[in-house]
Design a binder for these strands. Sequence first.
DNA 1: GAGTGGTCTAGACCACCAA
DNA 2: TGGTGGTCTAGACCACTCT
Lengths: 251, 251
Amino acid sequence: MATLHQVIGNTLRQRIADGTYPPGSTIPSIIELMDEFDVARDTVRDAVARLANEGLVTPRRGIGTVVRQTSTVALAYEPGKAAAVWADQAQGGARHDMVITAEWVSPDREIRARLELGGGDTWRVLHRVRHQSKEGVVAQVVEQWIPESVVGVVSDSAGVGLADVATDAELRTDLFTLMKDGGEEPTTVTERISTRMPDPDEADALELPPGVPVLVTHRVTKRADGTPLETATMVGAGDRMSSTFTVPLSR
Amino acid sequence: MATLHQVIGNTLRQRIADGTYPPGSTIPSIIELMDEFDVARDTVRDAVARLANEGLVTPRRGIGTVVRQTSTVALAYEPGKAAAVWADQAQGGARHDMVITAEWVSPDREIRARLELGGGDTWRVLHRVRHQSKEGVVAQVVEQWIPESVVGVVSDSAGVGLADVATDAELRTDLFTLMKDGGEEPTTVTERISTRMPDPDEADALELPPGVPVLVTHRVTKRADGTPLETATMVGAGDRMSSTFTVPLSR
DNA sequence: GAGTGGTCTAGACCACCAA
DNA sequence: TGGTGGTCTAGACCACTCT
């Protein structure tokens, strides 16, 4: 309890916690808080900025500073399931998977390493960017890289051309099945999950208010012999996403 | 490119990205930036505050504003492994697991639900708080709840008293083995991972600089018949932690 | 002591929103 | 139109770190 804006911030945080300012409501305006605590405008703004950075409130011009309410969407992995499933906490809500871009690229060092491609050759991989939405709001941005050979198998199996594979959003959910039918059955998925604050581009794409971190997931899907079939980097809105894993411990 | 502090912030972000200000170095002082961009002090501070909230820099009084360098510790789950293992990215580094508190408590609604304990009875569970450290820095705070019956089994199996079970930090890594020996073999672990900004207490405990989120993991360990053996809530420093899961897809 | 970032003020103007 | 938060200024004092 040292500085003024810390005292003000802690007081407001307490009031949010005890329900004095319930979720969805607005806290008192800057001017009202200036009067209550007898401080200058920027001191109040510092205090409110702290709360915004903690994700507790979202200041809105012309409206007021709104107490945030969260509802998360859970993504679940379980052994034996073909792929990750949207495990809705609440009931329903329209999901949508939209392909933003799809193009053939030369993978950079990082992607080559994940796909275990040799450095000398000139590999081509299909690079797709997708937006996964829930109730009209983008919850996760997925960047996916698939080696040319795997795309060929899927393409043959599905009876569609490469262009379709590249741009068909629905193909995504069935991709693992298509791989299996083509003889490239995926057997393990490894995901590394970390978190950080979004850069401005990500905050824009995910419509993140200040103070909301992103969940970053790096995925590699492999065949039984250890051959990587695809890799993906997923950036999800921290206030709208969670990932669940169930791992067997039997030996 | 609208407001002044955004322009300044973007310029500094670009310079950090292109190596003009390498990790560990300091960016120019507030006064130097005031001169360069011909703005007032608080405008520079707003710009720097944005970068700090993104986790790119850490302002230090008397030192300057330091460009952050990250090194993460990975925690990995794999099928068949007895428990999560510290999967060091870099080599070595002393790990430490310290019990902060251990006491018998009446579980609240949330914990009872996770452990699937009936609401009517008066259950007692062992509540332990531990700090997991790497190289002297706390990376994760673990709160763990174990039903009395399970503690009894472990206690008998290990040949130590309840008090020892409660306070022995080393017991943690072997807990799953002890459970197995006692006939309470854990067979599955389910973890739900999410992220958010830390509250002040967490930021203090984890020594988090501003702009670093936390990884929050909710774990439930179950026996083959579905009986929960323990549950835990883990709060890890977002700039020092990641979790890796490998899940088999075979059917 | 000199330089750093941290806090705070009093006042001004702007952008946005609802009634 | 009036109220909201957003930006910006010029200046002051404080707390901390290094030399």
